[in-house]
Amino acid sequence: MTTIPRNFVLLEELESGEKSTGDGTISFGLENSEDILLSSWICTIIGPQHTPFDNRFYSLKLYCDKDYPTKPPTVRFTTKINMGCVNQQNGVVEPKNLPILTNWNSNYRIQNILSELRREMSSSPNKKLVQPPEGANF
């Protein structure tokens, strides 16, 4: 397999994000449209139904450093959220508490992280957590 260089991976991701594939429950794009290094991303997850996260909009920031996709990006919620894998002080998703980050594989993409986070919202431990009022930020 040919290794696709970081920038071309991220360009592909940008294009797929702009096409807004999937069911529309997640979206992502560059934080700054002139970010030639394609590092900082801004993402949205709409909380799954029948959970405490139901229909809430959660904003995240994602940073891909030069080692992406060999290493996972850092992920941080800007919308306040109570979740097992999220540090309650600063909203950072703790890699050790999210399997996709712990067992990162260079074939994983931003989209996979977001889907995984949304799936995590439906998990039974997180379903029981009391959520902060809507609109609060870290």
């Binding site: 920038n7 071309f8 449209s33 970010d35 030639i36």
Partner: peptide, 19 residues
């Protein structure tokens, strides 16, 4: 091949990301 500018350039056929 996939090609992209890394240097910022003011050109009608090249966008902000160098595409």
């Amino acid at each position: 091949p996939k090609v992209r500018f890394l240097t910022k350039i003011y050109h009608p056929n090249i966008d902000k990301l160098g595409r």
